[in-house]
């Protein structure tokens, strides 16, 4: 039963995500949104598998666009977070 194992992961990761960010200072809200946004680009993995499988042309075309969108999300997301956090570090951090 793969579904119940997946559900277990989902529930446990949900609690973990809740615990991880409950004590975040307000100044880090925007960088956190940006940083987690980049993590949600993990869907790129799914896009790669679907785009590359090549079983159906339509699925590959859809997969192609999914890969482009998800890669923009991942690469752009991490770079913007990095830029934000660097200026943040200069102001008050390290």
């Amino acid at each position: 039963m793969a579904f119940i194992e997946n559900l277990t992961l989902f529930v446990l990761a949900g609690f973990l995500g809740y615990e991880l960010v409950t004590k975040i200072p307000a100044t880090l809200h925007t960088p956190l949104i940006s940083g987690t946004n980049a993590i949600s680009g993990i869907t790129l993995i799914g896009s790669v598998v679907v785009a590359g499988s090549g079983n159906s042309t339509l699925a590959s075309v859809l997969g192609f666009f999914a890969v482009v969108l998800a890669t923009i999300n991942v690469v752009g997301g991490y770079l913007v977070s990095h830029k934000m956090l660097r200026s943040f570090g200069r102001r008050g951090g390290e």
Binding site: A13, G17, T43
Partner: peptide, 12 residues
């Protein structure tokens, strides 16, 4: 990994 990473982002 999609489930774990996605849920982390969703919950946080």
């Amino acid at each position: 990994v999609l489930i774990v990473a996605g849920t982390l982002v969703g919950a946080s």
